[in-house]
Design a protein around this nucleic acid. Structure first.
Lengths: 101, 101
DNA sequence: CTACATTTGACCTAAATAAGTCAAGTCTAA
DNA sequence: TTAGACTTGACTTATTTAGGTCAAATGTAG
């Protein structure tokens, strides 16, 4: 699930048109269309607005936002999956380090 | 293991000084010092050079290069780990999709 | 066919990032 | 105590990315 897909899903399941949601977010509907197909990214502040409009957990939107961004980086990479593993290891290592201090 | 750490490790285990390696890469030694501590990133072309100098697999350097970049993005994120999972899922999903066609 | 929803392509500007340099400061052994 | 190895901070310039707009093209139900 990408952020774009999730937004589209939330929007449609609440019977809203792009123009309506776009206006709530104060962006053009052409832009929203691209956001829903992951051709463009939303500003991060918009996530909070979305979370309120659809009563959907902010943390999940946040994870999708970052995750989609990461995916854009690795999607055409030979070593994409390994790179994700590397990042994961560094992240858990850092956590342990911090816990020690 | 970060890319910087790996480079330092390779360099030291081959008894080379920063100035020597820096000159092979045609960069300043101050810059290399920062690269080794992940304060700066190397150009990607440099990875091939490193791979040859140290006779170390390019693919691994590549994975470290991208991985370290990903880590920089997620390291201060609440949802960092989840975001990595999201990206991983998208990546494997895409693979399946491609395999179907 | 035509009205409305959506998608797409071309374009734009401001802000951020990449990829360094250089000089000064620090560390460490001899 | 001083040379050589390394680190750090301040700065720079060129390129990329973010975050859009707008009009035209396309999809689609009635």
């Amino acid at each position: 699930m990408t952020l774009g897909q999730k937004i589209k899903e939330l929007r449609e399941s609440s019977g809203m048109f792009q123009r309506e949601l776009a206006s709530k977010l104060e962006i053009g509907d052409g832009f929203l269309s691209k956001v829903e197909s992951n051709q463009k990214t939303l500003k991060r502040e918009h996530l909070l607005t979305l979370s309120k409009i659809f009563n959907y957990p902010f943390s999940e939107l946040n994870a999708l936002w970052i995750g989609t961004k990461l995916y854009e980086i690795v999607k055409d990479e030979q070593e994409g999956l390994n790179a994700l593993k590397v990042a994961e290891q560094q992240l858990s290592y850092e956590k342990i380090e911090n816990a020690r201090n």
